[in-house]
């Protein structure tokens, strides 16, 4: 039986700089970006966390005691035993690059596109890293905390159709 905490300890022993924490018995591991692909491969192929539930991101700008800007979160599940594991990678500008998880999970494709679209984190080795939600001509990454809620005028700047034109 692969308890998530045992897996976390195994990750700690395998990669330098990883830390682990726990909240209400949910196990979280923070790994350095350079070890991410190794850790993902380990938890999928050896520890049996075969389901990538989600990839998402948190912007820690103005967050208390935060030292790095972004935290990319990988939510994993082990379908055999219904156990869950959270991996987190901290990133700061200008180094907003991560290895893509698509070689391990095909389902990471659209999740990584969403993180790229909303936060501007690029995934190296992604087969098709385009915006998935916003229009292609959009230039900002709207879920960043320094992006104004009401936008920078994107919703206003369309041609106006009058009765004479239509």
């Amino acid at each position: 039986m692969n308890r998530p905490h045992e897996v976390a300890q195994a990750i700690l022993s395998r990669c330098q700089g990883a830390t682990t924490s726990s909240f209400r018995d949910q196990c979280r591991v923070q790994v350095p970006a350079e070890h991410l692909l190794d850790v993902l491969r380990y938890v999928k192929q050896e520890a049996g966390f075969d389901l990538l539930v989600d990839i998402t991101c948190v912007d820690y700008l103005h967050y208390r005691d935060a030292t790095e800007r972004f935290g990319v979160v990988y939510l994993l599940a082990r379908t055999e035993s219904a156990e869950r594991l959270t991996l987190r990678v901290m990133l700061s500008e200008p180094q907003l690059e991560l290895p893509s998880a698509v070689p391990l999970w095909e389902g990471a494709n659209w999740m990584e596109r969403e993180v790229y679209d909303m936060f501007g984190i690029s995934f190296q080795g992604h087969p098709d890293l385009r915006r998935i939600l916003m229009p292609e001509a959009f230039t900002a990454h709207p879920l960043r905390k320094d992006y104004p809620l009401q936008g920078r005028g994107e919703r206003h700047n369309f041609p106006v159709l009058t009765r004479a034109e239509a």
Binding site: F138, T139, G153, E154
Partner: peptide
Amino acid sequence: ALVELPIIGRPSAACVRGTYE
């Protein structure tokens, strides 16, 4: 009028009028 609501910041270059043609 389009000026009724304030536009925050400057419109980004790709989103100016006509880009969505």
